[in-house]
Design a protein around this nucleic acid. Structure first.
Length: 165
DNA sequence: ATAAAGGCCACCC
DNA sequence: GGGTGGCCTTTAT
């Protein structure tokens, strides 16, 4: 992973999403993470692991504002994910998949001009820090299988169902 | 440095 | 349906 630039006003908060409890992490530069943790404890642990030596302020009010923007107004808040060049390229490709549609791991690999890196694409997608907003749930297998999902396949199905029509 | 582990795919049986 | 080998990147030794 590349070294992170200093974070401006690092904050996090929890809210209830249509897909379960969410932890959102953000700074003045945008959203860094949106996850569906098993528990608050695991959310804290994840935070410390991914941003060592950084102290975050809890701000559930701002988190709720984001929630409203995302799930009620269907808005697109600014994103600020941290990753390698390869990962950023993959995540960028994900952002181009329209809601309600799906693509495959192989097609993403084509799109970023690394047609043979299909497996690595799967790994990079699995490392997506911003669930739902970076729509990793819209990627399925070439053979039609659902593929995997870091936060549980049931949740992946839920998201696809939510976006249908 | 090197090994091991992945949200895969094409190919075989 | 299931198993194998190849492919590429990341992470943990």
């Amino acid at each position: 992973m590349k070294q992170l630039p200093p974070l401006s006003d690092p904050s996090f908060g929890f809210f209830a999403s249509p897909f379960g409890e969410c932890c959102i992490v953000f700074t003045n530069d945008g959203i860094c993470a949106l996850t569906f943790p098993e528990s608050r404890e695991s959310a804290y642990a994840d935070l410390e692991h991914r941003f060592p030596k950084t102290s975050f302020k809890q701000n559930d009010e701002k988190a709720s504002q984001f929630a409203r923007q995302i799930f009620e107004e269907k808005g697109k808040p600014q994103l600020n994910p941290a990753g390698t060049e390869f990962q950023l390229a993959v995540w960028d490709a994900l952002l181009q998949i329209p809601a309600g549609q799906t693509t495959t791991y192989a097609r993403i690999a084509m799109q970023i001009n690394r047609p043979k890196a299909v497996r690595a694409v799967g790994t990079a997608i699995g490392a997506n820090p911003i669930g739902f907003l970076i729509p990793c749930h819209r990627v399925i297998r070439t053979d039609g299988g659902l593929g995997g999902f870091r936060w549980g396949l049931e949740r992946k199905k839920m998201m696809l169902e939510y976006e249908k029509e």
